[in-house]
């Protein structure tokens, strides 16, 4: 489905041009970056901008190739082939976006490989069909490289089929624009929230394992815009979302207090 309205996205550099170039050259794209930094939104934005339908699959550890490609179903005593999201995207010539692709089971990569290189075909084993992808089809996958995990990493043979884009947290000015654009809150609140996020992000590795994402800032800004007290909003949206350790939470709250008073 192609949304009528293009989702809001604040570009940080050349990523829109890169996406478009990849699409024109029929190359698949890998996006990596921490959680909540705008990967999914970027894909939605670009798909709408290029007028393509978007099929998003959130991968999980029980996702098999059949879930992507499709399966036979029984209907009225007859068999009906039912396309999976990947097959649908190929048929329609849209964008198929596999979110957190490392979570998916290993057998899914088998169906991705022929699609992701110059063959650009999707073999459907069950029906014996070899589905060539139209020029407008694009495969986009994303993952979060932040976790050092031996069991979950992309095989080199898979990742070397993709162009890769690295996403980070936006610059303060851009992040402020995003928070305002998403929630309609005033510039002073947005700026202070972004400064607060900067302070929290400085704590990575020393005190916090995970740092606040832009998404969390948007949540906090939404609450504040809706009339909630700023300190409470930051506590529920930022502090408690980041740590379970009580002394750390108390200290983070102290930073919130210092920011908003």
């Amino acid at each position: 489905m192609i949304p009528l309205e293009i989702p809001y996205y604040e570009p940080s550099g050349g990523e829109c041009a890169i996406f478009e170039a990849a699409w024109r050259n029929r190359l698949p794209l890998l996006i990596k970056g921490p959680t909540g930094c705008g990967k999914t939104r970027f894909v939605a934005h670009m798909a709408a901008r290029l007028g393509l339908s978007l099929h998003t699959v959130a991968c999980h550890d029980d996702l098999s190739a059949a879930d992507l490609v499709g399966r036979h179903l029984l209907h009225d005593g007859a068999t009906v082939w039912c396309d999976g999201p990947l097959t649908r995207a190929v048929r329609e010539g849209g964008v198929c976006y596999l979110d957190e692709v490392v979570e998916a089971r290993k057998d899914t990569t088998v169906v991705l490989h022929p699609l992701a290189d110059d063959r650009r075909v999707l073999p459907i084993e069950r029906t014996g069909e070899l589905l060539p992808a139209p020029p407008s089809f694009m495969l986009v996958v994303s993952y979060n490289p932040g976790y050092q995990n031996l069991l979950k990493s992309l095989k080199p043979s898979t990742r070397q089929r993709f162009l890769a884009l690295r996403f980070g947290f936006p610059t303060p000015a851009r992040e402020q624009a995003i928070v305002m654009g998403e929630t309609g809150c005033d510039a002073a609140t947005a700026s202070q929230l972004v400064k607060l996020a900067g302070a929290f992000r400085a704590l990575k590795e020393h005190d916090l394992d995970e740092v606040p994402s832009t998404r969390l800032l948007v949540y906090a800004a939404q609450l504040i815009h809706g009339g909630m007290d700023r300190i409470t909003a930051c506590r529920v949206a930022l502090v408690e979302a980041l740590t379970d350790d009580e002394p750390t939470a108390a200290a983070l709250l102290e930073v919130v207090n210092a920011s908003f008073g």
Binding site: A199, F200, A202, L203, H206, D207, P247, T248, A250, A251, L252, E254, V255, A258
Partner: peptide
Amino acid sequence: EKTAGLLFRAFG
């Protein structure tokens, strides 16, 4: 002490 360290780093 713990708060102090964290605050110092959070304050930049």
